[in-house]
Amino acid sequence: MTIIKVADLDFCYGKFQALIRVNLEVEANKITALIGPSGCGKSTFLRCLNRMNDLIEGTKAKGRIEIEGKNILSSKVDLVDLRKKVGMVFQRPNPFPLSIFENIAFGLRIHRLAKGVELEQIVRQSLEAVLLWDELKDKLKRSALSLTLEQQQRLCLSRLIAVKPEILLMDEPCSALDPVATLKIEELMQILKKDYTILIVTHNMQQAARVSDATGFFLLGEMVEFDRTGKIFTAPQDKRTEDYITGRYG
């Protein structure tokens, strides 16, 4: 089932066009990887999907992005609902300088989704979902900043999961982590994809090959090729894709 459908998406930072006619269909409950050299527009594309680019002055998006059939580029879209549905994890883990508990309760509180016992239950479930509960159940009052980077990134995921999103956007979620922690996060992604649709930006091609079901290759703002991951890495159709995955690009 297609959950995200992007059609002829153009995106500009002022006069600079960062995305050019991007077309893409993302399957639900799959992991979709976006690869490409630095500065080719991967993060920009990801931020279009939850309209985080709106925060940057002078930006403009044209075209269509349908999520579950609704065009989210429409001015009528409720950004609060959109961002609840489409959660985002950043390159550097960014837990709030609050307790572990309050980090996860944050989304539940601002959206008034739960309180009291129910809130505590959801916090627990969210921590269980990212396999942190056993480690942290006695330390919920500790500052989230005292955790290791890997734990922090998991916490950021669990903070999203608490508000029951459908799509998880991950912008190089492992670039601040060591290889062991990276593998652990990848394992977690495999578990999470049963319940969520995941888009991951990575410039680590092995990671894309390991974790994803589909892969899109970006170059200079264009989506050069989009296909099943196996196909992209074994039989790319475009010469530029082949050059990139064989390491002939920067």
Partner: peptide, 24 residues
């Protein structure tokens, strides 16, 4: 990044100020 995290969770500007920026 704190502010981004809060906004990406669907917090309004005011909620972000009250619950993240002021405590920080």
């Amino acid at each position: 990044s704190y502010k981004q995290g809060a906004l990406a969770l669907g917090a309004t500007h005011w909620q972000t100020i009250r619950r993240v920026i002021i405590p920080a």
